Computed example of a mutant assay.
Amino acid sequence: MSRSYAEVIGDPIAQSKSPAIHGFWLERLGIDAEYRACHVTAEGLADYLAARREDSDWRGCNVTMPHKQAIIPLLGQLDDLSAEVGAVNTVVREATGSLIGTNTDVGGFVEPLRTHLRPQHLFRMARVLGTGGAARAIVAGLARENLVLVLAGRDPAKARKILDELGMGGEHHAVDLAHFADPTDFAFDDREGCLDLVVNASPLGMHGQPPLAFDWSHAPPGAIAYDIVTDPVETEFLRDARAAGHRTIDGLVMLIGQAALAFEKFFGMAAPREHDEELRRILMR
């Protein structure tokens, strides 16, 4: 008897924690289904989707690097959010075989910021480091929350293009990532009543990747450091932020949040979030 399943695709994929997350929830809810990891190269992406489209047991997939934008023209439909962001991290198969792209990165990223975003602020700013598919989702999510954005990339022209494609207007800024590497003596104004974020939306700092060069003199007092990297969970970026007196949010928070949104789309039940602390302990092993 066949079993329904979903999976995560990417290149590489061995490091993905998504099978552990979805497997944990499937077990807790007693759902007879599977969640797998599948290595899919750029050259194999079209063939992968063509095969899965014909598989009625396949509920869909999560999409990780480097496919979040490349997958778009291969899908039958995008929902409004993924079309706005220009990146897809979740594909859902309908009963007809039609594939719909969506983006749960936006909701997953914003979820742990809700308590910080709830109060009114005199000014809100985020420095977002990175220009990949995850960065696009983060920029779109923060823009919806009325933050002024500084998007930093190794290619500032690409950062500017992302801001323009997302219809961000002139109040947002694109800069060279190297701008943040060296110390600054910039005197920040009074930040009382302000909200400041510094977000690593790049793979820098991941195992196998170069470190992220960010000097915390570029962050105003009271800023929140948020790193979407999950391998390792405790990154140098976060350690340095805490040493400089900043609050921190790690990548597991976003990963679990976006996975929960995808899980419900795949399996038709809400993820049992009351077990988040237990799940985190498993993922940290």
Rank of each mutant, 00 (worst) to 15 (best):
R52E: 06
V106Q: 12
T235W: 04
S202P: 09
N103S: 08
S4W: 14
G268D: 14
G107T: 13
F263D: 02
G10D: 03
A270H: 09
P156K: 02
R114S: 13
F237D: 03
E7F: 12
D176M: 10
L113K: 13
E171M: 09
E84Q: 14
I224P: 07
P119G: 04
G10R: 11
R124M: 00
A262L: 12
M65R: 07
S82I: 01
S18Y: 12
E278Q: 13
E54Q: 10
A87C: 00
D231R: 15
A20P: 07
P211Y: 09
A213L: 12
L26V: 01
M168Q: 10
E54H: 07
I9A: 10
G44R: 10
H22C: 02
N146K: 13
G30C: 13
V199T: 09
T230K: 13
R114K: 15
I224N: 10
A223R: 00
G23V: 02
C194T: 07
L122T: 07
P156V: 00
G132L: 07
I72V: 06
Q77I: 10
G97E: 04
L122R: 14
T235V: 06
M168R: 09
V92S: 01
A152P: 10
M168L: 04
W58S: 00
A181L: 08
P112I: 04
R118A: 13
A159Q: 00
Y226D: 07
F109P: 09
N89K: 07
A152G: 08
L45P: 05
L78M: 04
L113G: 13
I138M: 10
L129H: 03
D182G: 15
Q69H: 00
D155K: 03
A244C: 06
S82L: 01
A271T: 05
I249Q: 05
F180I: 03
Y5I: 05
L49Q: 09
A20N: 06
P12R: 08
P232E: 06
E54W: 00
A157I: 01
I31S: 01
E84R: 15
G170D: 15
I31D: 02
F188Y: 00
T102K: 12
W25F: 12
E54R: 10
V229Q: 05
Q120H: 11
N103H: 12
N89V: 01
I224E: 05
M168S: 11
L74N: 15
G132D: 00
R144V: 01
D47V: 05
V150Q: 15
A244W: 07
H173E: 15
G251K: 08
H275I: 03
A219C: 03
P221T: 04
R242D: 01
A134F: 02
A20M: 14
V91N: 10
H246M: 08
L81D: 05
T131V: 08
V91L: 07
I249P: 11
D196G: 01
G245Y: 11
T115M: 12
T96I: 07
L142K: 05
V40W: 05
N200W: 06
S202V: 06
